[in-house]
């Protein structure tokens, strides 16, 4: 499950922020902001992707670096939201 989430997240980031460039290395734990991969308005697109692709609704308070500022963090966040949904 998490590997498919990770693949989807990485594919989205590569396609949208690196314009499909396969030569740029994208470490799973690298900060997307510090490494200038996404900018301010890029986060809006990232939130829209997470909501649409994984069917979660992000509260304002959840749109923070701890949940979105690396591939690993996004995967963990999506995992926590989808497991909550299953538990309910």
């Amino acid at each position: 499950m998490s590997s498919s989430v990770k693949d989807a997240v990485k594919a989205f980031i590569r396609e949208n922020y690196l314009f499909g460039d396969e030569t740029v290395e994208l470490a799973d734990d690298a900060s997307l902001i510090e490494n200038d991969i996404i900018d301010s308005t890029g986060v809006l697109e990232l939130v829209a992707f997470v909501e649409e692709h994984f069917g979660v609704v992000m509260d304002d308070a959840e749109i923070v670096p701890a949940n979105l500022d690396s591939v690993d963090r996004i995967v963990a966040y999506v995992g926590s939201k989808t497991s909550q949904a299953i538990a309910v």
């Binding site: 301010s40 890029g42 986060v43 670096p65 979105l68």
Partner: peptide, 9 residues
């Protein structure tokens, strides 16, 4: 701050 990427932060 470096950017407004995360308004809540």
């Amino acid at each position: 701050e470096k950017s407004f990427a995360f308004p809540q932060a």
